[in-house]
Amino acid sequence: MHDYFTARSSFQRWADRRRTDPWIAEDAERVFRFSQRTDEQKPQEKQPTGPQRGRPELNTPNPVASVMPLLSFDRPQWVDDIVYGAVATAAGASKGRLNVKPGCVLAALHLAAVSTGAVKTADMSIRTAQTIAKAARHAAHGIAFYLDRHPAIRTRLMFE
């Protein structure tokens, strides 16, 4: 019962902070303008000109995308442990340092579908994006497994 009230009060603090955010009107206007674009203004997907070569990009649905905003706000220790284990297992380490940052994997866990293209930024190599996506898939399945084993936590997250 205590965990429910703690999580509820932290959510209320976040909601109060969000309501007093001076940029909320500008964010809403930007979302509205983006959703009102016509078909001519929307970016066109590239049409393949020749035969497609290579392996198709892996696009994995994220089973924990709906609860990740709450989990990353509260940041329970078990989430950090699962993400660290996923990075150490899937991405590995060299010279005593992890090959990718756990923060990048946490950011990728907010995506509805984890893919290399969705994770990649302009200043990131394709190999790094592939490694982050691999670790994010591993962490997503680990978090989903943890929530399956602890149904009280899952139900508490669904009610928030």
Rank of each mutant, 00 (worst) to 15 (best):
R53N: 13
S72K: 12
M124A: 11
G117P: 06
M158T: 14
T155E: 06
L71G: 02
A88V: 03
M158Y: 12
N99S: 05
A112H: 04
T121N: 00
M124W: 14
D3M: 13
Q12M: 12
Q44K: 14
S72Q: 14
R156E: 11
P43G: 03
D21Q: 01
A15H: 02
L111M: 15
V64L: 02
R154L: 13
T121F: 09
A122L: 06
R149Q: 14
K95G: 11
E29W: 15
G96K: 06
S72D: 15
Y146C: 11
A113C: 07
M158I: 09
N99P: 02
W78G: 00
R137S: 07
A152K: 09
E29N: 08
L147M: 07
V79T: 02
E26G: 05
R19N: 10
Q47I: 13
A7C: 08
A135I: 15
A86M: 11
Y84F: 03
E57I: 10
H138D: 07
L111I: 08
R127I: 14
V83S: 00
H138Y: 11
T20E: 04
I143Q: 01
Q130R: 14
R19D: 09
R55V: 11
S125R: 06
G142E: 11
I82L: 06
D27L: 06
L111K: 13
W23F: 05
D27G: 01
S72N: 14
S9M: 09
D80E: 10
L147I: 11
P76K: 01
Y4D: 11
R33Y: 07
P151N: 04
Q36M: 00
A86K: 04
R17Q: 10
A90R: 10
G85C: 02
M68H: 11
I126S: 08
S125V: 01
D3Y: 06
S66L: 03
A65C: 15
Y84A: 00
S125M: 08
V119A: 13
R33T: 09
K134M: 04
R53G: 14
G117H: 10
S94D: 10
H150K: 08
W14M: 05
Q52A: 06
D123N: 06
V64S: 03
S35V: 07
S35L: 10
G96E: 13
T89E: 12
A90D: 04
L147R: 00
V100H: 08
V87D: 10
A88H: 09
G54I: 11
F11P: 00
G92E: 12
G103P: 01
G50M: 06
D148Q: 05
G117C: 04
R33E: 12
S94M: 08
R149Y: 02
D81R: 00
Y4I: 13
V105P: 12
A122D: 12
T116R: 14
T89S: 11
L109H: 11
H2Y: 05
F73L: 14
M68S: 11
E26P: 05
V64G: 04
D123H: 02
K42W: 02
I132C: 06
W23M: 15
A136S: 12
D123I: 01
A139L: 01
R55P: 05
P56V: 13
A7L: 03
R55D: 01
L58H: 00
H150L: 00
P48W: 05
A135S: 13
E26F: 07
P76Y: 08
R33N: 12
R97M: 09
F73V: 05
Y4K: 02
R13W: 04
N99I: 12
A139D: 03
D21S: 10
V31C: 03
L157K: 03
